[in-house]
Design a protein around this nucleic acid. Structure first.
Length: 407
RNA sequence: GGCCCAUUCGUCUAGUGGCCUAGGACACCGCCCUCUCACGGCGGCGGCACGGGUUCGAAUCCCGUAUGGGCCUCCA
């Protein structure tokens, strides 16, 4: 995995890394994280840290220390001079250019796209070492691939046209070729390139929205890859067990945020309540919402089936943590009858509350559907809420009665 | 403009010449369940870009066209 430290990690890049990781772990191989920082002018401070943090959040790891491309600059320079000595490269205004073969073709069997062939005469002689002595990506990258013993290069399709040059360089260096796999791009919802302005693209945006790692990983894995014609839900371990480059499709995919929402909901519902509470607490903490942990934990059974993103949580249960303004225009007779009924209840639990309110509604000759709605509105301040009886139990008798009387 | 790549329901995909009157999932619509919302169940809508070949037979192979994309930096 070889990001350049020019900013936050783009979701398309995350997906490419995921394929690298799934492949390496599936094969029992090693995966390296190499930061391609030869363009010091574009380097963004913090980016290296942030990239690692994002990958770890998703659950992607790597073997050994992080490598930096600049660390091998000297070695690359030496090899460039060697190429000059052997007439495979030449000096040009202080820089060094690689001399492409002038005839014939260069081709490789791409692990996702099959055979790809370029004519050598359309390839330009690329600068491989700048006049200031720093190597450029198209040279530093294959050189590091040799140095690191890279067997498989899995990267975005935007690198397809760099590949013939890198292969020619590797051949001039008399090195073995790695297997190349060029995975498709990810498009935004309009089928065009993901745009920073219109689409959520930074991994942090997804963390903020309240997606959880295994759900996002599952979703990303399915963008351009499938296990078979039926299976959708796959935990990280299952993805590792099943991944193969042969089943990566060559055509670009459009990011479907609604499907991600659904998938995240599936994962959220599968969590046990304590895990769910931990995700909630982390998310709330990061958004500086300071609600008591015990009560947050108590809301879990009320919300787990209802929301599909953690970011929907605060609005959904706010009435349990903060005051609600008394609504206007409710059926006063009904609300006050409910208050009286609940005031005289022996035991304050959801089952008793439900039983009492149901018989009240029955006595009044109302339909449950229409009768419970004003009560919900008085108690939660909203027409949409968790289950009414469970909500009342958790709210406590005192507060519940206050709100009913105020309405 | 040159080179390279891609093209199955709105979206992600299954499909590697007969198993396809093209399967699944999300979305959407309808019904059921139901205290709202959700969950769940049942059903529905909807697709092989186009044109030529090859073949007894093509979503699958070949050619062309169209559309979309990538790259053409002393960026990565």
């Amino acid at each position: 995995m070889a990001p350049s430290p020019t900013g936050f990690l783009h979701i398309g890049g995350v997906r490419t890394f995921l394929f690298n990781w799934l492949f390496a772990r599936r094969q029992g191989g090693e995966i390296l994280l190499r930061i391609e920082n030869t363009d010091t002018s574009r380097e963004v401070e913090e980016a290296t840290e942030q990239i690692q943090r994002s990958l770890r959040w998703l659950g992607i790891d790597w073997d050994g220390p992080v490598r930096f491309q600049l660390d091998t600059a000297e070695r690359a320079r030496d090899l460039a001079h060697e190429l000059v000595a052997r007439d495979h490269a030449y000096e040009d205004e202080g820089a060094i250019r690689f001399r492409q073969p002038k005839e014939g073709t260069v081709s490789w069997v791409d692990a996702v796209r099959g055979e790809i062939e370029f004519r050598n005469d359309v390839l330009k002689d690329p600068v491989i070492v700048r006049s200031d002595g720093r190597p450029l990506y198209n040279f530093a990258s294959p050189v590091d691939d040799i140095l690191d013993g890279i067997t498989h290069v899995i990267r975005g399709e935007d690198h397809v046209s760099n590949t013939p040059t890198q292969i020619n360089i590797l051949r001039a260096l008399e090195a073995d070729l790695p297997v190349y796999a060029h995975v498709p791009n990810i498009n935004g919802e309009n089928g065009r390139k993901l745009s920073k302005r219109r689409d959520a693209v930074a991994l942090d945006d997804f963390v903020d929205a309240g997606y959880i790692p295994p759900a996002l990983m599952n979703f990303l894995a399915l963008l351009g890859w499938s296990y078979d014609d039926k299976t959708t839900i796959m935990q990280p371990a299952e993805l590792v067990e099943r991944f193969s480059l042969e089943r990566v499709v060559p055509s670009p995919a459009t990011f479907d945020y609604k499907k991600l929402d659904w998938l995240n909901g599936v994962y959220l519902r599968e969590l046990d309540e304590d895990e769910y509470a931990r995700f909630l607490e982390t998310w709330l903490h990061e958004h500086e919402i300071d609600w008591p942990a015990g009560r947050v934990r108590a809301t879990v059974p009320l919300v787990q089936e209802k929301i599909e993103k953690l970011s929907q949580y605060p609005d959904f249960v706010r009435f349990l943590f903060e005051d609600v303004p008394p609504p206007e225009g409710l059926d006063e007779r009904l609300v006050q009858a409910a208050a009286a009924c609940l005031a005289s209840l022996d035991s304050w639990d959801a089952a008793s509350i439900e039983q009492a309110l149901r018989s009240l509604v029955d006595e009044l000759g109302e339909k449950p559907r229409t009768a419970f709605q004003p009560i919900r509105l008085a108690v939660t301040g909203s027409k949409v809420s968790p289950g009414l009886f469970e909500s009342l139990e958790l709210l406590g008798r005192e507060t519940a009665l206050e709100r009913l009387r105020a309405a």
